[in-house]
């Protein structure tokens, strides 16, 4: 029977958390279909030990394509490698992460494979009777949900937002195969050259992979006050986000921007202060697990989406909250025995 595939992501030989989240989704689908679940890894070099974790977290087999040209993401090279593998082994479902690379790679291979692709799925299921993949996604800023299927084309492909599901616990008893596949050198794209990856760039923020994001908006009134948001983020060990207004006013840089023209995120906790909750902003955080809003306007749109809303003056609330959380965490650290 045709397999379910998930496309793992790695960096420097270390698998990213989203690889395991995808397996949790894929496991459910494969079990319903009664087929095997394979995790496909494209890497320059990665150890058996690292790949073994994919099996312990749900995969029945690991297909690892290795080549030095796979060190950095080049859409065309990755696409050719995957297309060749998919043509040979004809999976019925392929899931990838809705990341900067997944959202580039999957559309590219959908064209070549003449496959249907649905972006940013929040729910995946198998239709009774037909065995087709049911893909549910938000559209138009999350105001509409659409369930989409691909009746006549294979594979059925989806991207899934990072953090939208939890990885399965590691199970050391699980067994599976690891197969290493060499990349056909003809697949290496000659027109594109990766010059490097700039990390720790000033003003950069990795919001997509953060478990906690604390964001500030126009209610902060001026650039200096943005530090109140940074301090709470530090206390919670989270990343710093911002509304479009805060970025447009120059209080912080664009990589911090959350919303339709910024980043779409699904952290475990999203706290925002002085953010009114324009629909463009809400679209970026709808899938956050827990939302806390702090805004002096009881009618602010953000409060309606919040799991916990505080109506009040953020300049009074934020410093106290930061202090309390810092104390808690310090207390926990002291009391903890590791």
């Amino acid at each position: 029977m045709n397999e379910v595939w998930t496309i793992a992501e790695q960096s420097g030989g270390a698998l990213k958390a989203v690889s395991f989240e995808l397996l949790a989704r894929g496991r459910q689908l494969a079990d319903k279909l009664g087929v095997k679940l394979a995790s496909v890894v494209l890497a320059d070099s990665i150890s058996d030990e690292a790949l073994r974790e994919l099996i312990e977290r749900g995969a029945d087999e690991v297909l690892c394509v290795e080549h030095p040209a796979l060190a950095g993401f080049v859409c065309e090279t990755f696409a050719k490698a995957l297309v060749a593998l998919a043509r040979e082994r004809t999976p019925q479902v392929v899931l990838a992460a809705a990341t900067s690379s997944g959202r580039t790679l999957m559309p590219h291979i959908a064209v070549t494979l003449h496959a249907g692709l649905t972006a940013d799925c929040t729910e995946l299921d198998i239709e009774e009777g037909t065995g087709l993949l049911l893909q549910t996604r938000p559209a138009i800023g999350g105001n509409i949900m659409a369930t989409i299927k691909t009746p006549d084309h294979k594979p059925q492909m989806s991207t899934v937002r990072p953090k939208a599901s939890r990885p399965l616990d590691r199970d050391a008893c699980r067994t599976g195969s690891i197969e290493r596949i060499a990349l056909d050198p003809a697949f290496v794209e000659r027109r594109v050259e990766v010059l490097g990856l700039e990390r720790d760039v000033e003003g950069f923020e990795n919001l997509e992979e953060a478990q906690v994001v604390v964001a500030g908006g126009r209610g902060l009134k001026k650039a200096e006050n943005f530090k109140l948001v940074r301090e709470l983020a530090d206390a919670l060990g989270g990343a710093v986000g911002a509304s479009r207004e805060a970025v447009d006013r120059g209080w912080t840089s664009y990589p911090h921007q959350v919303g339709l023209s910024g980043k779409t995120i699904s952290p475990r906790l999203y706290v925002c202060a002085g953010v009114s909750g324009a629909i463009q902003h809400l679209a970026g955080i709808k899938t956050a697990e827990t939302i806390v809003s702090i805004n002096s306007d009881p009618e602010a749109g953000i409060h309606k989406l919040a799991d916990f809303a505080v109506v009040g003056d953020l300049f009074e609330i934020l410093p106290r909250l930061t202090k309390r959380i810092a104390e808690r965490r310090a207390g926990v650290a002291e009391g903890a025995c590791k």
Partner: peptide, 18 residues
């Protein structure tokens, strides 16, 4: 290749504590 099989309007409010 993709066909929309169902459209629905999600609940936008979470009805959290205020």
């Amino acid at each position: 290749p993709t066909k929309v099989s169902k459209i629905f309007y999600p609940k936008v409010t979470r009805g959290g504590a205020m």
